[in-house]
Amino acid sequence: MTAGQYFSLIDTMARLSLKAEAQRYYLGYLWWVLEPLLWVGVFYVVFFQLLGTRTPDFLMFLAVGKLMFIWFSKTVNYAGNSLTTNAGLIGRMDLPKSLFPLTVVLECSYRQVAVFLLLFVLIVTDGFSPSMLWFWLFPLLIVQLLLIVFCSCVAAVLVAFQRDFGLLINLGMVFLMFVSGVFWDIRDIANMAAADALLTWNPIAFLLHSYRQVLLWGEVPDGWHLLNLGLFSLVAMLVTLRLMQRYGAHVARRVVSA
């Protein structure tokens, strides 16, 4: 399979899957933006109205955090099951196993484009104006995508070998949401060393913080850390894809016999 065929295939699979999903629901494609908006709405009511959080511009703060976090969490959660749900196809054809998690990544990324546009509209209507700083979004999005591909492939293989990992990944995403500053500000942590450690070792916390720096606070993100994270994600992704290619038939045997 050539690279062109490979990408054309994941593109087709992703589009067909999105189409089928939209046909299942009365509100169809509208759910792409409705679901994330509902999340933001519920968090807003709980943390702002009920708990009275004092984070400035909390609605936008939350929208950036939650909408960018959903891209990661949803993709990895879905991708975790991508090999097992395609067991029928995997048991019938000798295909590159990375095809399945990558289709999920593309599918969720197409959906994320709509969410991202929604986020822009929200931010601009709220009075934030675009600036040159927004160009930082490109490297930030690329690094997040690399990280998503890496984590999605790892999740898919783990679940293929032992389904229990599916539950752990679901739980892991909830834990990650709590420790990544989705609905609270890392700058509020009194212990500076702890806040630094969180931004250094939790890539999602770092990315969400950087998105907010760029979109809401007019600050330049930590480019050096972003570069390191990008390089790590790239290498980790390439190694994982290579391993999936090399041990694809073992994965197939496991998926089909499970």
Binding site: L16, S17, K19, A20, E21, L89, G91, R92, M93, D94
Partner: peptide
């Protein structure tokens, strides 16, 4: 080579036409 077996390998949410398209591309 293609292995055809019963009830496997189709995506239930997609139409027969879309499944055939996928099969051909695969």
């Amino acid at each position: 080579v293609a292995l055809l077996s019963l009830g496997l390998g189709f995506k239930g949410d997609l139409s027969g036409r879309d499944n055939a398209l996928l099969a051909a591309m695969l």
